[in-house]
Design a protein around this nucleic acid. Structure first.
Lengths: 196, 196
DNA sequence: TACTTCGCCTATTGGTATTAGGCAACTACT
DNA sequence: AGTAGTTGCCTAATACCAATAGGCGAAGTA
């Protein structure tokens, strides 16, 4: 019997392709085996189980996304860097919905914590924020707010929560501009709000 | 054979309980039947299928969440209303992780669009924003940014993405204060950012 | 009490994840 | 080239889950 040339990398890559095509939740060992023209048990030599496969897809996507963001941000600073970061983030999520969904599900915290890809996201965020001259803990706080806003926006957008007739892209651009204003005036914004 | 007294409502409620206990993705017809002490096919008289069940849990959760937020915001305005909204949102998500996860997954857009629960979220957001005297399209843009930030924050928090030693709650409060500042200065923030 | 309705049952089918063990194809060494 | 060992994909089997069809007894109605 001719061999299919499976490797962990090729299986993970195919799973990512499948996720973008049919949705991350529909990535099954059976469907993946079919896409290779191979029987299901054959995949278990390359990935431990379905959970392992999904984690690998998530790490692959996080790494790819970090690459795109890094390329977009390179050579820019301030509002240019912020806009490049934000648009690279959203573009990746919209063009790779299955891979992006993989990064959304809750994985083993140990795997996430040990992953260089996720660490790069934090680093990229902090590098992009450098022009705003924030210091800790402002840097962490602002970074968390930014990533939350980006992540939340594309999630709500792809889940069809934004139903108003107002253009989704126009709202996005306005939101990014607003976040830029917020970062430039972060110290003024630090006055604690009532009984928060 | 004694009857178990199943109804669509009781089944949905039990599924929500189960989701909070074991995670939304682990809510199965089989596990739900076990929790009632009945056989699996018995549930199909009350819910159409698994997808239907999950949508019902999502709508239940969205409604409960809207109730909590409405109660928290009642009688408040401005920064008090914003903080009450934000904290009610986050508290619900953290205390009911399974139900909140149900609202995150992509459901049938027709079901979501026709749901009063999701419409109430938009209304509550707009009501809370009233004190900031925004007009369309600013109202929609600001509302989307707010909901994105809240949703993104609790999602990243529950998924264990925030690993820095900085307190997650402190960052949250700071983020809410920053959003308040942003809303108060929304028109100043409207200057379009470079090549966004 | 007889009849109807309806709730939960048994039986069954098909899909999926996962493990155990076998055989054939590739690799390396003589 | 021939052979030993390794590796890759296979068949077989188990267990769990979703979903449908049809039956039977319990609850409501005359």
């Amino acid at each position: 019997m001719a061999r299919a040339g499976l490797t962990t990398e090729r299986v993970t890559e195919a799973a990512a392709e499948l996720a973008d095509a049919v949705g991350f939740e529909n990535v099954t060992v059976a469907a993946l085996a079919r896409s290779f023209g191979v029987k299901e048990p054959s995949l278990y030599s390359h990935v431990k189980n379905l959970k392992d496969l999904r984690e690998r897809v998530a790490l692959l996507a996080a790494g790819e996304m970090a690459d795109r963001i890094a390329a977009a941000v390179a050579g820019r600073s301030g509002v240019d860097a912020l806009a490049a970061f934000a648009n690279a983030y959203r573009d990746y999520a919209l063009t790779h919905p299955g891979r992006y969904a993989a990064t959304q599900v809750r994985h083993d915290p140990a795997v996430v914590a040990a992953s260089p890809a996720f660490a790069r996201h934090v680093e990229l965020t902090h590098a992009m924020l450098r022009a705003y001259r924030l210091e800790e803990p402002d840097l962490t706080d602002a970074g968390r707010l930014l990533r939350s806003s980006f992540h939340g926006y594309v999630t709500l957008e792809t889940n069809g929560v934004f139903t108003h007739t107002r253009e989704i892209r126009a709202s996005w651009e306005r939101g990014v501009a607003a976040l830029h204003f917020l970062l430039e005036n972060w110290s003024a914004a630090s006055v604690r709000a009532g009984n928060v």
